[in-house]
């Protein structure tokens, strides 16, 4: 199983802080496309992904237990 975290406008779109689902074996990019379709997520081309709290490329394969976070362009400071 995997925990998928959403922030900022993505959290509003999904309506949850996180989802628990099995994404093991998929790439980060595949998961992104799948969730974009399911939840009609906006502006996903600018969204970064983190796996276990580190930025990941779209071709990274998700392992069982990985925590995935979708990270819109940041606006701290």
């Amino acid at each position: 199983m995997n925990k998928i975290l959403f922030f900022a406008h993505l959290r509003d779109a999904v309506g949850e802080e996180y989802l628990k689902l099995n994404a093991t074996g998929k790439t980060v990019g595949e998961l992104k496309v799948e969730l974009a379709g399911s939840y009609n997520l906006p502006k996903l081309d600018t969204v970064m992904t983190a796996v276990n709290e580190e930025f990941a490329q779209d071709d990274e394969v998700i392992q069982d237990g990985d925590e995935i976070a979708f990270i819109p362009p940041v606006s701290g400071g």
Binding site: F7, A8, H9, D12, K43, D45, T46, V47, M48, A50, F55, A69, I71, P72, P73, V74, S75, G76, G77
Partner: peptide, 26 residues
């Protein structure tokens, strides 16, 4: 690079801001 976001609240609405101008795509 730091995952922090701000949501602006104005008199006529609110919005999550992304890299201020949304000029950066990844």
């Amino acid at each position: 690079i730091v995952p922090i976001w701000k949501k602006e609240h104005w008199e006529d609405g609110e919005e999550w801001m992304g890299n201020q101008l949304e000029t950066v795509a990844y």
